[in-house]
Design a protein around this nucleic acid. Structure first.
Length: 594
RNA sequence: GGCUCCAUAGUUCAAGGGAUAGAACAAAAGUUUCCUAAACUUUAGAUCCAGGUUCGAAUCCUGGUGGAGUCACCA
């Protein structure tokens, strides 16, 4: 039982005995630094139930706690705040418990609880991953890890949009301008190669529109009737009809793209437990459109199109199948969701990591699934995040203003290298070791920078200036971790001996550290319930700041007393291990030296 | 125009309805015989506006202002 729970019960008892009132909850907060005390009970909060002067109520409770709780050493009341001082023995004992727990803060999944499926990335197969995908991937991966740490079984997945006109555009351009280029013949990553043809298609398309307009065709008409576009549409029809050549080319080019993506994912450090392809699930979606029609969830219009009327729920009517019988975007999403539950019967809920421009789409999707009668439809969550904009404005792939994911990762490593060289760090390391470290540091900077921000908020990303290595950044935290490892390497005494709680009073800085460490499990749970890696990031930073202050103010290895040395090394070590665990939830590695 | 999201120091981010709104970067000043100075310490600086609810509001409600997104038989 945590201190807070214990105190909570005792405060309730105090109120019950003294005022004959039964409290349901007691409100706690950390005591502000300018007051003495370790934990604070907000008396204001109980004024609704307990009549009287808040200060007197506080005094009464305080006195009761002094008598009845061995952990309470003292108290003071300021306005409606009851500040409680906790005994040193409690801290030492509490810390000894934390120390023994190797997976501190992490909860083992319970067998009977339903699993959660987390979807993220979900790229189109016609162009490489860019900065927007980076935020998506980092968020999705991190939320999956956080959910795992909070005790859930988690499956990571993605839906690959491998079907549609956009792929045909790249295919057509490759056939026409490709000269049989392959990733092997050009040395290009497969996704880059295919992306180049997407651009080439667009250039040719624009040229054709121009010449049509010159001939007097209206712009609108020209956009629709440009020969190259019509040919791409013809190709899509052939694909849907299963034309052998088209399907073979489609498979070949998709394979290139997947190879390229795999490399980028590996570099980013994200992975998936299962993959879904749109080309496999859209048909199932259509089956359930038929099912919904039977149930009366959907209705067919005269032209054959199928709609879901959501006006009673305050939304619009939504089309779920075209008049020609083909699937739309949402049809496929319905199918994919159902397919996933079929494949993984232990899944009881899903998290969709998709940008906030699709907020409306997901409210509609979730509502439709609920109307179709699936019990798991109540446990769907759209992990919606803001766009990543550049100082120059929005990223547009056709205008060449995208920040490529691979380039970005490489640049980060290069920046890390430049800064490390300048500071003269890492002397005596082999070149491969250095390169590996630069990558870890560069990625740490990038990931932390993106994840520390509330997902809902839009990020303005300046590739040149956005990445710092000082202050509230990944490298700063990595650096602290590395420094602690250095302390441990130099400790030439047995620091694993647990100290006797009654024999030691704590230095204020030590106490602060223990307090900060004790918060970690709660932070993990909050981050999981709010789907927010930012909570973990900011907590880790606070912990590291607390440590740095401690490091600067007390001597660790140079302390006179052996007991002091032992507990201080233990504290440092635990800080490092919590940092490591916290960062593992963000997908960031921590180096032993830097 | 309807709906959704956002608005906090010069800048980038914090703040479960609670005390004097916290950090970092940038600016100014200081700290290395000692465990990694990518550090630490100090100074200066902010809740878009107007109402309301509350003992108490950056936070909740209403109305503005500014920005973004969305309102396709696109995905």
């Amino acid at each position: 039982m945590s201190l807070q729970d214990t105190l909570s019960n005792q405060v309730k008892q105090a109120v019950n005995k003294s005022f004959d009132v039964t409290l349901e909850t007691v409100e706690f907060q950390a005591t502000r630094k300018e007051f003495t005390g370790d934990i604070t009970v907000v008396v204001f909060h109980m004024l609704r139930f307990v009549k009287g002067n808040p200060v007197q109520i506080g005094e009464t409770i305080g006195n009761y706690l002094m008598e009845h709780s061995k952990d309470v050493k003292g108290f003071n009341v300021v306005k409606g705040f009851l500040n409680i001082e906790i005994s040193d023995a409690y801290y030492v004992q509490g810390f000894n418990t934390i120390l023994k727990d190797d997976a501190y803060g992490f909860v083992k999944p319970s067998a009977n609880e339903k699993a959660i499926m987390v979807e993220y990335s979900s790229p189109n197969t016609n162009k490489p991953l860019h900065l927007g995908h980076v935020r998506n991937n980092l968020l999705g991966y991190s939320v999956a890890e956080i959910l795992k740490a909070s005790g859930k079984k988690v499956y990571k997945t993605q839906i690959i949009n491998d079907r549609g006109i956009h792929i045909c555009k790249s295919m057509l351009a490759w056939e026409r301008f490709g000269n049989n280029e392959t990733p092997e013949s050009t040395g290009l990553k497969g996704d880059k190669l295919v992306g180049n043809y997407y651009v080439k298609f667009d250039q040719a398309y624009k040229k054709e529109i121009e010449s049509l307009v010159e001939k007097g065709v209206s712009m609108e008409e020209a956009k629709k009737t440009a020969p190259i576009l019509m040919e791409a549409q013809k190709m899509l029809l052939k694909w849907e009809a299963g034309d052998t050549d088209v399907v073979a080319l489609w498979k070949k080019m998709n394979t290139w793209v997947y190879d390229g993506f795999a490399e980028t994912y590996k570099n980013m450090g994200v992975d998936f437990d299962s993959l879904y392809y749109e080309s496999n699930t859209y048909l199932l979606g259509k089956e359930f459109v038929a099912e919904g029609l039977k149930k009366g969830v959907f209705a067919k219009e005269a032209d054959g199109s199928v709609w879901c009327d959501l006006t009673e729920d305050g939304l619009d009517k939504k089309i779920v199948q075209r008049s020609d019988g083909t699937a739309v975007y949402i049809t496929q999403d319905i199918g994919t969701a159902i397919q996933r539950i079929k494949d993984f019967p232990d899944v009881g809920g899903m998290v969709y990591t998709v940008g906030n421009e699709q907020d409306y789409h997901f409210t509609v999707l979730f509502l439709i699934l609920k109307k179709l009668g699936f019990d798991w439809a109540d446990n769907l969550y759209h992990l919606s995040y803001g766009m990543v904009d550049l100082p120059s404005g929005k990223m547009k792939s056709r205008e060449g203003t995208v920040v490529d994911a691979d380039d970005l990762i490489n640049e980060m490593a290069a920046t890390a290298e430049a800064i490390s060289e300048e500071l003269g760090k890492l002397e005596g390391y082999s070149e491969p070791e250095k390169q590996e470290l630069y990558k870890v540091i560069g990625l740490g900077a990038l990931k932390y920078h993106i994840l520390k921000v509330d997902p809902k908020k839009r990020i303005l990303f300046d590739p040149k200036e956005s990445i710092d290595f000082q202050g509230n950044t990944g490298p700063f935290i990595q650096y602290t971790y590395a420094r602690i490892q250095s302390i441990i390497r130099k400790a030439d005494f047995d620091y694993t001996i647990p100290l006797n709680a009654d024999e030691r009073t704590l230095h204020p800085k030590e106490k602060e550290l223990v307090k900060q460490l004790e918060l970690f499990p709660e932070v993990v749970q909050n981050a999981a319930s709010q789907h927010s890696p930012a909570l973990i990031a900011n907590y880790t930073y606070d912990l590291v700041k607390e440590f740095n202050s401690f490091y600067q103010n007390v001597s660790i290895l140079g302390a006179d007393d052996l007991n002091d040395k032992i507990i201080r090394v233990q504290l440092s070590n635990k800080v490092a291990s919590v940092v490591k665990q916290g960062f593992s939830l963000l997908g960031i590695e921590v180096p032993e030296r830097m």
